[in-house]
Computed example of a mutant assay.
Amino acid sequence: MKIMRRILVAATAVTATVAMAPAANAAVNPVLAAPYLYQWENAQNPVTVMQQSGIKAFTLAFVLSNGKCNPQWDGERSLTGADITRVNQIRAAGGDAIPSIGGWSGNKLGPTCSNATTLAAAYQKVIDAGKFKAIDLDIENTDEYENNTVQDRILGAVKIIKQNNPGVRVVITIGTETGGPAGKGTRLIQQAEALNVPVDTWSVMPFDFSSGGDMVAMTKSAVTGLKNQLKSTFGLSDDAAWRKSGLSSMNGHTDNAGEVVSVANFKSIVSWANSVHLARVSFWAVNRDCNNCAGISQGKYDFTKANAAFTG
């Protein structure tokens, strides 16, 4: 996701402060089918998207460090400002949201916070600001992914969050090879087991593989590889491992020249994900889900409509 997803374009600063978000909608699972939505380019009105696509949840990107162990939206906007207004609007329309903490670029909380306790406190600020019932930790690039000490710090913080908020679900999103997570991704999964960290859902990003190829087959292979790692690492049955696995695709042209996830591809991926009962299906991003916005011919919100058909 080096071009469209991984380069963070600075958003216009928002200084207004609003009331905290209302309680999350208990009827909506924000982890299940929640495409990414960001605010720095081609921002979409989430209520309009919901009305036109049938989607009920969004993954809001990204929460970053403001240079200190302090979380802000895109590293610069208050946790209780315009972004929480957006959460309020989603919930008032019958939906819900999950914040994504991390991403490819920008200042990350993992390396900035000095230990697991202070990092957990930063995550807690995010949870409290939105009364969120789930968080997505997008661990890729930089020291959050590459540095073993920071990986362990993140896992330690997750353990604290789960102890203090047993009802809050934690998703960890990582990159993958066509055969499943490798290298530091595998190490992160194994450390979660070694440190007894109760991660609810592991989600992979099955793209940026090559200059083309069968993206449906490669997605299935990558997610199956994740499932197999979870099965062997945590001693799970196939069914239980599938239900802890998820994916976040990329609509249209990915960051790799020639690699494309078409609408038909994504519909097939969603159908397969339903058949194996994955815990999560998402994609990057709603902002790119319109004709030629992702370099392909499509109808507006075609990918979001397909994502809304995921029922787990």
Rank of each mutant, 00 (worst) to 15 (best):
T311F: 13
A43P: 10
A279H: 06
D200S: 15
L195A: 13
A26Q: 10
T59G: 09
L8G: 12
N291D: 15
M4N: 11
T142N: 14
V204R: 00
I189V: 08
G81D: 06
K227F: 04
M1F: 13
I269Q: 00
R169V: 07
G185S: 08
G212L: 02
P30S: 06
A93D: 06
G175L: 02
N115T: 08
V14F: 12
W272G: 05
N66W: 02
V197P: 04
L188K: 01
W40S: 14
G213P: 06
G94A: 03
K244M: 13
A222V: 05
F234K: 02
L155R: 05
K184D: 12
I174Y: 01
K244P: 06
W202C: 02
A241I: 04
V199A: 10
A61T: 12
S221T: 03
K220A: 05
R243D: 14
T112H: 02
D200Q: 12
S211C: 09
K131W: 13
P35E: 08
N256R: 08
D128R: 10
K162H: 08
M215K: 02
T17A: 13
V261K: 00
H277D: 12
K125E: 15
R169S: 11
P181E: 04
G299K: 10
N147C: 10
L155K: 02
A19P: 12
N292P: 10
L60V: 11
N70A: 14
T304R: 01
L236T: 04
T80Q: 14
S105H: 04
G103R: 01
V87K: 01
C113W: 02
G54I: 04
D96H: 09
D239A: 14
A16I: 14
A157C: 07
R77W: 10
A257V: 11
V9I: 13
N307K: 10
S282E: 05
V223F: 01
F62Q: 03
C69A: 09
T118I: 10
V204D: 00
S203H: 03
R86Y: 13
T233R: 06
I189K: 00
R6H: 15
D74V: 04
F132S: 01
F209R: 00
N307P: 05
A116L: 03
D143H: 11
I161L: 11
A122D: 06
F62E: 01
R77M: 11
P22E: 12
A10P: 11
A116Q: 06
R280L: 09
S297A: 15
R187N: 13
S271V: 12
A273M: 09
N196E: 15
G225N: 04
A122N: 07
A273F: 01
M50I: 11
